[in-house]
Design a binder for these strands. Structure first.
Length: 282
DNA sequence: AAGTGGACCTGCTAGC
DNA sequence: TGCTAGCAGGTCCACT
């Protein structure tokens, strides 16, 4: 579920409420992608700080307080199917609830059927294991210093498709399968084009499209394909605005109304890519 | 070195 | 109705 907008919407939906809370208990369910890396008891009594986001990760700082707890933080990732909820009451844990941080302000709960998500303790963001997990991440899409020239430079000479290059997230983070498809549509670029063949102006346009798509998704609370909800339990609405994602065989909203041009689906790097063969050019 | 494919794990849906 | 194949929002790792 979670690409940058979903992660950010989730973060915003609980950050204020958990800030300053005291960790009272920790419940660990089935194993997630990586081990927690700390004995849950070590966290008890720690004070929670302001949750931040880097790429699709959420960093929840913890501080030793009143002689209890441990300095560091939890790095959370929602994987493919994860979501976080924050509620003042602690409902019984369901089969897919694999981590509860029970605090004086409420319970932060990770629900993740496929368990590709993770909750990893780290002594600091810039120390392992967090630093190692974040090391390969590209720039934040809304970093004002990031320009199309950065994409152009990073992709020079590379043969991977621009769609896969976006998904790789080592130049610019945040666009997953849905938003990469949507951004390429908005920019009018064929997703199969080798990224090294993109002209500088098209890199500018692509970055602008990535930003526009992510910004819009943030505005409407992200995409809820199956069951994404923010920590309040509210779903997003971007799925109603997708122009290509999941629309294989349907008419292109831009050119297909009169001409009957249909959205196509191809597989790139074992992921579905949706595009308009007319609007998106090589 | 860059590029490709497999791995992780579970649930849902379309099709027979 | 019941089974199976195929698909799903991510990303790390091993191999060529």
């Amino acid at each position: 579920m979670p690409e940058l907008p979903e992660v950010e919407v989730t973060r915003q939906s609980f950050a204020d409420r958990i800030d300053g809370a005291r960790v009272e208990a920790v419940r660990v369910g089935k194993p997630l992608r990586w081990p927690l890396g700390v004995a849950p008891a070590e966290l008890l009594g720690a004070e929670v700080g302001a949750a931040s986001r880097r790429g699709k990760y959420i960093w929840l700082p913890l501080r030793r307080a009143a002689g209890r707890g441990i300095d560091g933080g939890l790095l959370l990732h929602l994987g493919m199917s994860g979501s976080l909820s924050f509620s003042s009451t602690s409902a019984p844990a369901g089969v897919h609830d694999h981590f509860d941080l029970i605090t004086s302000s409420g319970v932060l709960r990770l629900t993740d059927p496929r368990r590709f998500g993770a909750v990893v303790w780290s002594p600091a963001l810039d120390q392992p294991p967090a630093s190692r997990l974040l090391a390969a991440l590209g720039r934040e899409p809304f970093d004002p210093a990031l320009t199309g020239a950065d994409l152009h430079t990073a992709w020079r000479g590379k043969r991977v498709s621009v769609k896969q290059a976006l998904l790789a997230g080592d130049v610019v983070v945040g666009a997953g399968n849905i938003y990469a498809c949507e951004a390429l549509f908005m920019a009018g670029i064929d997703p199969r084009l080798p990224c090294g063949r993109l002209s500088r102006p098209r890199c500018d346009r692509l970055l602008e499209a990535v930003r526009a798509v992510l910004r819009r998704a943030l505005e409407v609370g992200g995409t809820s394909l199956r069951n994404f909800k923010d920590a309040h339990g509210d779903p997003g609405a971007f799925q109603f605005e997708a122009k290509v994602y999941g629309r294989e065989g349907q008419s292109c909203t831009t050119c297909g109304v009169a001409s009957g041009v249909k959205i196509r689906r191809v597989v790139q790097g074992q992921r579905s890519t949706f595009f308009c063969p007319v609007c998106q050019r090589r």
